[in-house]
Design a protein around this nucleic acid. Structure first.
Length: 756
DNA sequence: GCCCTACACCTTTTT
DNA sequence: GGTGTAGGGC
């Protein structure tokens, strides 16, 4: 016990040992929040207040869940595999598998990832002759997910115009088709388990009685449905231990609602609110920068981080002339750090959007520095893996039309658009899945389709007694996927990836405790071992064990895993490499040195954020997250020009520079924005849009030039992005940063030059 | 039925 | 700049 609690500071100790009531822990960045969460669980178990299976702990990312399990197994001498610790989606998946009948789902229901969902919607629109220009698939997807994230079914969504009415109608059709095919999207996992618990009283009461302690990580990221889900599961007596940081709420765009924190305080009658403000991560100047910046936000619960570490190094700021030069500067600085003894893996380069990684990668590649990019395409998202998975999906649930369409003619087996049209007609006529409709198609199309069905059924028969890895191996062969890629020029990598899938299956089966020889298709083990049956009001409840083998077959579990954990992109794993990632994916991580790049108006803060309510504050929180990733060294950079979407953009430096404390910063370049025409000619070379007339004008000392910084009485500082017309008729497009882009008549507008 | 080319659109972040 | 889709040619 003593060693469990020693080394905790007074606030952490108070949080860990709170009584069994709901509590809100406001945990600032680097204040030891994961430590508090895991120690709390260990303390509850060790003091005998609850057994390990009476605890439910929820996180948002698989990474966070794994981290928690790992730390916990170091503190407690128990098997952590059976613990209810996981992501919202992972836990809901388990619950729905265990109670699939009550939830109205087939045992082998499959999970659509975002890409699957989008193509599913495209197919739905086509099948119902809906104009996809009027109803863009992406818009419909956001509409459906938004409704589900608020806990609303189609029948409950209010529509205010004809477009919305149609979207509601499509939402309804979408749900019906998902049901027919036995597939669920991410939001559905939550909504369906919420409905399961709210409609089934004995089940609800059973789990309420079981989970007396619910712990939630990153509470600020919960959406309305997740909040309702927690409230339902906690019931009247459950104690919810919520840990969060309103300043790190960066997922409003996908439905997260920071308001849940104050709602929680009110509705759960929180008596215990503890703030963790002692930061153990960053040096003083870095923390000052973070505190000063975030103070510009109005809606805050109030919290200020402090540190015992000294000021440390100032935050270094660099202004580059181009994105290429910015990347070169970053690489040079990183080299210096490495020369001074830094580990490459302790240096992170952060950016706002994935597209920005390209230039930096190029620069790193040329310098021969190993690096690792997070995000981007992940293992289970690769086309060849998706194909192999689709064969496996059809063997587990043949009614998954998406899987059917993906591989019915891949590798090519002469089943073209015409055959599929006939099949789709038949499926519609008899209200069957494509797979089931195959016998109703006559002629040549019918026979090639039947041989595809025979292929799937043959594979299923051949592998029904085999363990998962062997099943995967056989599927790779009988599907002819390997053979197909052997004939393709660039196929070698793909074949290697496919063979990795067998290893992934082996690893998965052993990690989740299925046993290496358990038949892949065998149902859940709990049906054979009825010792988990509970009787409540005469109703039999098979209690869901947290361990996967108890609730699903190895194959179903593996397919869930592929959707829920897209898998790291395993590029250069294990090597000491520089870390490249978006600010979003850096949340929860920390590094000795951090570079925040592309700090320009329109990029960071992102221009799209201006349209969204509270968007500006969310961008500022994002910046706060970025700053607080750094332990010892922090670098910020921006560039005067940047290639984006194939054209050169001229951006102003980010407004965030005006919100940082002067004394913590060190500008490596003059702070006033110089006219870069004087210092760099490359801006001209890269900008074909500059007409001949403007080039001619540029030799006139008094004329305005593209790229020049100007000052306007009303709009403030701006940059000339383009000039049209000539002489007295010339007008300029000027980017005034937060005031937006303006088209001004140069002979009328009062503009001052800002000297370089 | 399949392959190739042209063009459109994109790009904020993710379970 | 890259990717996905549509349409035309074989």
């Amino acid at each position: 016990m003593q060693n469990l609690l020693h080394n905790l500071n007074p606030e952490q100790l108070a949080a860990v040992t709170l009584p069994a009531q709901s509590a809100l822990i406001l945990a600032g960045a680097g204040s030891g929040k994961t430590r508090v969460l895991t120690t709390r669980i260990a303390w509850l178990v060790q003091t005998g207040q609850i057994s390990a299976n009476g605890i439910l702990a929820v996180t948002f990312t698989n990474k966070a869940a794994k981290e928690m399990l790992m730390r916990l197994s170091a503190m407690l001498p128990i098997n952590t595999r059976g613990l209810w610790i996981g992501t919202f989606h992972g836990l809901c998946n388990r619950l729905l598998r265990a109670h699939h009948r009550d939830a109205g789902l087939p045992q082998t229901f499959q999970i659509l990832d975002s890409a699957d969902q989008l193509s599913f919607i495209k197919r739905l629109l086509k099948a119902n002759n809906v104009d996809d220009e009027k109803y863009p698939p992406r818009t419909l997807m956001y509409f459906i997910n938004g409704a589900k994230d608020s806990g609303l079914r189609a029948s409950e969504v209010e529509a205010y115009d004809a477009i919305e009415r149609k979207m509601v109608e499509l939402y309804d059709l979408y749900d019906q088709q998902c049901q027919r095919e036995g597939v669920v999207d991410f939001a559905e996992l939550l909504l369906r388990s919420y409905e399961l618990l709210s409609r089934n009283q004995p089940l609800r009461e059973h789990y309420q009685a079981r989970f007396k302690h619910i712990l939630v990580d990153e509470f600020q990221d919960t959406n309305d449905l997740q909040y309702k889900w927690l409230k339902l599961l906690a019931g009247q007596h459950g104690a919810v231990f919520a840990v969060g940081d309103d300043d790190q709420s960066i997922y409003a765009f996908r439905g997260a609602n920071v308001g849940n924190m104050s709602a929680f305080e009110r509705e759960f009658r929180v008596q215990n609110l503890i703030k963790l403000e002692q930061n153990y991560r960053s040096h003083g100047h870095i923390l000052d920068a973070a505190n000063t910046l975030i103070a510009n936000n109005s809606k805050r619960l109030g919290k200020n981080l402090r540190t015992d570490a000294g000021h440390g190094e100032p935050v270094r700021v660099y202004e580059a002339t181009s994105d290429i030069q910015e990347a070169q500067w970053i690489v040079e600085e990183a080299k210096n750090l490495i020369r001074e003894g830094s580990l490459r893996s302790e240096i992170a380069i952060l950016y706002r959007s994935n597209a920005q990684s390209r230039v930096i990668e190029h620069s790193l590649f040329t310098s021969g520095i190993p690096y690792r990019v997070y995000g981007g395409q992940r293992y289970f998202e690769r086309a060849e893996i998706k194909h192999a998975i689709a064969y496996l999906q059809l063997m587990d649930n043949p009614h998954n039309d998406s899987a059917f369409l993906r591989v019915v003619n891949f590798p090519a087996r002469g089943i073209g658009a015409r055959s599929l049209e006939q099949l789709q007609d038949a499926a519609k006529q008899y209200n069957l899945s494509l797979y089931a409709a195959v016998p109703y198609v006559a002629g040549k199309a019918g026979s090639s389709l039947s041989s595809f069905v025979k292929l799937i059924e043959g594979a299923r028969f051949e592998t029904q007694q085999l363990p998962l890895p062997e099943m995967v191996q056989i599927v790779l062969e009988v599907s002819s996927l390997i053979e197909h890629y052997q004939t393709e020029k660039e196929g070698a990598d793909r074949i290697e990836n496919l063979e990795q899938l067998v290893n992934a299956a082996t690893l998965f089966v052993s990690e989740e405790g299925f046993g290496l020889d358990a038949p892949a298709l065998a149902g859940p083990a709990s049906q054979a071992t009825p010792n988990v049956i509970t009787i409540a009001d005469g109703v039999e409840i098979i209690d869901a064990d947290a361990a996967l083998p108890a609730v699903m077959s190895p194959l179903s579990a593996f397919l869930s895993h592929a959707s829920l954990e897209a898998g790291d992109n395993q590029a250069q794993a294990g090597q000491d490499a520089l870390q490249l990632m978006t600010v979003h994916s850096a949340k929860g991580l920390e590094f000795d040195a951090v570079f925040i790049s592309g700090l320009e108006e329109g990029l960071f803060p992102h221009e799209n954020s201006a349209k969204e309510e509270g968007g500006a504050e969310e961008e500022r929180r994002l910046m706060y997250v970025a700053i607080t990733r750094a332990r010892k060294r922090l670098y910020m950079s921006f560039s005067q020009t940047r290639m984006l979407h194939g054209q050169t953009r001229y951006n102003m430096r980010s407004r965030f520079f005006d919100e940082l404390p002067e004394e913590a910063m060190k500008w490596l370049s003059p702070k006033t924005q110089p006219s870069w025409f004087a210092s760099s000619k490359s801006a001209w070379d890269e900008s074909p849009s500059t007409g001949a007339n403007t080039i001619a004008q540029s030799f006139n000392k008094n004329a305005w030039r593209i790229g020049e910084s100007v000052f306007h009485a009303k709009f403030g500082e701006g940059v000339i992005v383009n000039i049209e017309g000539s002489g007295a008729n010339s007008r300029a497009h000027i980017n005034f940063g937060r005031h937006g882009m303006k088209l001004l008549d140069l002979s009328i507008a009062k503009l001052d030059k800002i000297p370089g």
